[in-house]
């Protein structure tokens, strides 16, 4: 771990000011990803701004939805009564991720900002375009069974590791940020980015900006939803493929469909075309298969992860079935519904 200045901010304004224009500065809250990366010498902040004392630790009603402070822990969020009753998809996705200890420490803002999953990115002994732009991507043609099947580039095939973010993508949350140039709102779909030729950037935050709240819209998909996570062991492992699925149904007819995938791309993966395809259709396996086929049609395998395409196709169908039937996956129940 490198050495750094430590600043403990008392207000949001102080935090933003402390960051200033220092490109090596980092905000820290739960620290569960940043300290991990610092120990691998992947992140070497010159200045750490401790934001844990900022007044951003509440969940409040707003416009029929909920406004989640950036410092609300993953556990507090998942077990909040309002979240459990109105946004059970979000609660379930959070509980699918990491471990109880990590969820207790990790913050909402930090979860959104966690870096991508890739063996090479974490290993300073190897090249990596994300870590050292221009050095190359050995994951391509290397050990890549966990890597992206959607939206990857010749520069980077890493995946976004978050489960929570997959649910937030499906729920169409909005991320409120503040920074040197003031406040702005970022639609969740625009928050994370694909690697393109600039994989160093995981998201669209500008330098010095910090997440203040994550806002959930009124539409909560409380009745028909699921978070289905498939992985190499039954707990405490990142997703090979995960599916956040949600419906509004009129009887057996789909009024609205939301579907986001985790573990398959540099960001939570949505395909609006597939969601549109389902709209107005009966909630049948055939229609779910058609949506899944449409989604995986644009998947591109790497040398070792072709199986994820078929796994994703099947997981999408099952996730949509779970959501439609109102039998969401319980994360402690390892039998898949």
């Amino acid at each position: 771990m490198n050495r750094f200045d430590y600043v403990r901010a008392g207000t949001v304004a102080e935090a933003v000011q402390a960051f200033g224009s220092d490109p090596s500065a980092r905000f820290i809250a739960g620290g569960t990803n940043l300290i991990d990366l610092m120990k691998y010498n992947v992140e070497k902040p010159g200045r750490l701004i401790d934001i844990t004392r900022l007044p951003l630790n509440t969940i409040e009603e707003r416009d029929g939805g909920l406004r989640i402070g950036a410092l609300v822990s993953n556990a507090d969020l998942a077990y909040d009564d309002r979240i459990r009753s109105r946004y059970p998809l979000l609660s379930s996705a959070i509980l699918a991720g990491a471990s109880a200890q990590l969820r207790n420490a990790a913050s909402t803002g930090g979860n959104i900002n966690q870096r991508t999953r890739c063996y090479y990115f974490y290993d300073e002994g190897t090249p990596c375009n994300k870590r050292e732009p221009g050095s190359g991507c050995p994951a391509i043609g290397g050990v890549n069974r966990i890597h992206a099947i959607f939206g990857a580039s010749d520069a980077c095939i890493a995946t976004h590791p978050s489960d929570m973010c997959v649910a937030l993508a499906a729920l169409e949350a909005t991320v409120q940020v503040t920074g040197p140039d003031g406040d702005r709102a970022i639609a969740f779909a625009d928050y994370h980015r694909l690697p393109g030729d600039d994989p160093a950037k995981d998201n669209t935050l500008k330098p010095g900006e910090m997440v203040v709240t994550v806002d959930l819209p009124a539409k909560d998909y409380g009745q028909h939803h699921t978070y289905l996570k498939l992985r190499d062991r039954l707990s405490y492992a990142f997703a090979l493929v995960s599916v956040a699925a949600a419906f509004e149904l009129d009887g057996q007819t789909i009024r609205t469909a939301r579907l986001a995938l985790g573990g398959v791309a540099h960001k939570p993966w949505r395909n609006l075309e597939a969601e549109a395809l389902l709209q107005g259709k009966p909630a049948t396996r055939e229609n779910f298969q058609a949506a899944a086929d449409l989604i995986v049609a644009e998947a591109k395998p790497q040398s070792e992860n072709g199986f994820k395409i078929e796994l994703a196709r099947r997981a999408i169908v099952r996730g949509l079935e779970q959501a439609a039937a109102g039998t969401p996956q319980t994360q402690s129940d390892k039998r898949i519904q």
């Binding site: 620290g31 569960t32 300290i35 991990d36 401790d50 200890q101 420490a105």
Partner: peptide
């Protein structure tokens, strides 16, 4: 009273 991984917590932040 809450369980966390102490390896990923900076002591200074737990003041």
């Amino acid at each position: 009273g809450t369980r966390i991984n102490s390896c990923l917590a900076l002591a200074v932040m737990k003041d």
